[in-house]
Amino acid sequence: MMFLDTLPRFLPARSNYLILSRCKHVQAARYKRSIKGNKPLTYEMAGPPHTIAHIKGWNSWNTCNMLDGLRPAETAIDDEFIRRFMTGTWHDLIASEIIIKRQHDIIRIAAITVQKISVTKVYFLIGYTEELLSYWLQCPIKLELQTVEDRTAVVFKYI
């Protein structure tokens, strides 16, 4: 960012100016302010992507992208499948990002859920998710959930 700011001073050429100013126009994973200022953001949402490894961590932990790591593409697709599956199966219950960690053939899925449904139903969903995902991904799955009273508990700031 700083580099892009100072760049125009060295390269005042007009033809490049538009590209450079467009370079500054990043909008990925940044939330726009609301008029009333009551849009809730979780901690994850509050940090823009350049703060990953600074104040944020990653959402998906695996060794596929190291040197000689195996099947990075398939892993990414599987992660996306898992996230959509979780969000769809747990109807409106997941209040945070879904963290996926792969550790020795076991996939550990962590999320924060809201205490909206009865406990027996939660256990049913836990058993069901673990089993079905293990059939799909062909490796054991462990779910690690944390429950929270309602969504206001995971709100970090209001924008």
């Binding site: 020795h104 053939d105 076991i106 293990s134 490796c139 054991p140």
Partner: peptide, 12 residues
């Protein structure tokens, strides 16, 4: 649990 999975063949 991992022992059970290993015996069932699900785990390395």
């Amino acid at each position: 649990q991992m022992i059970i999975w290993t015996e069932q063949g699900k785990l390395w």
